[in-house]
Design a protein around this nucleic acid. Structure first.
Length: 269
DNA sequence: AACCATCACAACCGCCCCATA
DNA sequence: ATATGGGGCGGTTGTGATGGT
């Protein structure tokens, strides 16, 4: 019986007819009672699937197929530094964008950065980056492991360069197993405790260009107001304490267009 | 033209919280 | 008090498009 029910559930890409049914349902009952869509036999989709389709694709005023503007990029980067990976919350500041959009944007940027850093270091030996996203959870957050180590190493090598690295992390002091799960995109392997050294050349000016401005105390830009009022206290902050909400920072002081700059540098001979 | 790498996006999964029976 | 189902959210995966070699 259960198995039969499960087999009835349709997955994969949505057809126009299904969209139409879903839109009609929302017109009639509003964006709720998702599970009733299946129980009424309107669609063979789960309530979750219906809700996701509506929120991410069918909802009015979505900026579908429209790339993030420079302003939106700045907003995401700054809000991520403030809220951490609270994509739904961040999305409330971006009219027409969904949490999925923001998440995808961030993820692709992070992968891009990982690739850039990977290429900038000696790919053959010292890098601890895995180009493939890490499937397991056995990773440490970038800032507490990698950049922390970079900081230490940099301090050791040069007393004058430590100011450039704003990544001293509360996480290093407050070790939180759950927090360690986060930021898996760069695929740093826990069992691989090699420090992330950008090759051997810490004096490479390119290295510091990547990390952004030396003075990290200044905000990069003013925050926009949320498009619609975000819930005063998010329903929950899974895995995140109030402290590390602020510490869940990777691109803290990265200029919004740094990827372009970095890309330019890596492209030019 | 063929191949490969990368990007962008859609969709699913698993976990969690909350309301309700 | 607790079991359960619905819904929200973050993480992950799969795939088509695109650009470079």
């Amino acid at each position: 019986m259960e198995a039969t029910k499960k087999e009835d559930i349709k997955k994969g890409p949505w057809k126009a007819e299904e969209d139409e049914v879903l839109i009609n349902h929302v017109k009639r009952y509003g964006p709720r009672d998702w599970s009733s869509i299946r129980s009424k036999g309107l669609l063979q989709r789960t309530g979750k699937s219906c809700r996701l389709r509506w929120v991410n694709k069918l909802r009015p005023n979505l900026k579908n197929g429209c790339k993030f503007s420079a302003d939106e990029e700045k907003t995401v980067i700054d809000l991520q530094s403030q809220f951490g990976n609270k994509w739904a919350r961040i999305a409330t500041y971006l009219p027409g964008r969904t949490d999925n959009d923001v998440k995808n944007f961030w993820s692709s940027r992070l992968k891009r950065l990982a690739r850039i850093l990977h290429n900038s270091s000696d790919a053959s030996s010292s890098s601890c980056f895995d180009p493939k996203p890490n499937k397991g959870k056995n990773v440490k957050p970038i800032q507490s492991q990698s950049f922390g180590l970079v900081e230490e190493e940099t301090r050791a090598s040069s007393a004058t360069t430590s100011k450039i690295l704003p990544y001293s992390s509360p996480l290093s002091d407050q070790v939180d197993d759950e927090a360690l799960i986060r930021s898996p995109e760069l695929g740093i392997k826990l069992e691989n405790h090699q420090p992330f050294t950008f090759g051997t050349d810490l004096d490479d000016p390119f290295f510091y260009d990547i990390l952004g401005p030396a003075d990290s105390s200044e905000p990069l830009f003013g925050l926009p107001q949320p498009f619609f009022e975000p819930s005063p206290a998010p329903r929950r902050f899974r895995h995140v304490s109030k402290d590390d909400e602020e510490s869940d920072v990777f691109l803290h002081d990265f200029p919004a267009d740094m990827f372009d700059q970095v890309d330019d540098q890596t492209r030019s001979p």
